[in-house]
Design a protein around this nucleic acid. Structure first.
Lengths: 170, 170
DNA sequence: TTGATAAGTAACCTTTCGTTCACTATAATA
DNA sequence: TATTATAGTGAACGAAAGGTTACTTATCAA
């Protein structure tokens, strides 16, 4: 219970931040959930703010890599059934992955206080899915699987209902 | 500056809650923004929690009245142009009305901590618009202005892109 | 004008927060 | 084994939080 304590603190912090927000989270409770005492935290982090910034930096880096580079794009489906299947799979993952769910909640809470959280929320909620499906629909239009149209508008109309449901329930 | 102090406190609280959240708001700062001192607040409210609950009660009552009864429904438009115009008007109002904007932010922040806020957020963000446009599309289908279909699905597909844009930017 | 009620203030209380520090136990290294 | 860096603890600190109290000032009806 020594080497991975830092990781455990970050995990517990993400969970607590995503439920109570930054201001609503206190270090006593956070460390107690790991069977530690509050002063132990300062062996791993210099301040509460560092615990906030560390996972946020990671999340920003993750989303830049995930949605900023084309190599992480899923393959263009070769049928409408394939599109639906891929969408279902992605939605399922988005709902079930605990870290993603917590990230979504965290950004909802903190987007109006922390500018970097706001930027990330915009990418996470709005642009990420839209950009991804824009590329997918472009590919499908080239293949003749979809009638040629503005792929961004189509992607937006296609993904926002899904996002709304996910955002509201998970 | 005596009689309406209570109202002013509530307004300032809504504004502060919508930016910093409940835990991030402190009474000293809140009352100072009105030129008062924190102890003055306790002449009007018994606790910080009461300042939280009072506007929340009002908001819940408002949304119950607004979306719970049919007499507040806008008239069914008699053309597609009328539909677009009405949608634009509603969106514009939703973006410009300060109280609505603050309510939206407040619910984003507090929905995972306060169960009543979560219920209200669901109504506010998701169900409210969908139910309203469901009725509108029902009426337009009866008039023959829209092809008969499931009006709820159509309303959902129609409103969620708008909601996504509003939610992200305002 | 007077008397009572409401509104506002300053000082203080208690609790909790984030943080520091001296110290102990543990683990790794030489 | 001896040494040293790392991880964890308990006590304490100052600041800030929510809340109370005794007191003053304003308001307004009788």
């Amino acid at each position: 219970m020594a080497k991975d304590t830092k990781e455990k603190i970050l995990m517990a912090a993400l969970e607590m931040f995503s439920q109570k927000g930054y201001a609503g989270t206190n270090i006593r409770e956070l460390t107690a959930s790991l069977g530690l005492v509050k002063s132990s935290m300062y062996k791993h982090f210099s301040s509460k703010e560092e615990i906030w910034n560390t996972p946020l930096d990671e999340l920003i880096a993750y989303y830049d890599a995930r949605f900023g580079s084309p190599e992480h794009l899923p393959p263009v489906p070769d049928s409408l059934e394939g599109l639906v299947a891929m969408t279902t799979r992605m939605t399922d993952f988005t709902i079930r992955d605990e870290t993603i769910v917590m990230t979504r909640k965290l950004l909802s809470i903190e987007q109006f206080r922390d500018e970097r959280a706001h930027d990330l929320a915009t990418k996470h909620f709005l642009m990420g899915l839209t950009e991804m499906f824009t590329k997918i629909f472009e590919g499908m239009m080239e293949k003749g699987l979809l009638r040629s149209d503005d792929p961004t508008m189509l992607a937006f109309a296609y993904t926002t209902p899904i996002s709304a449901l996910i955002h509201e329930r998970y």
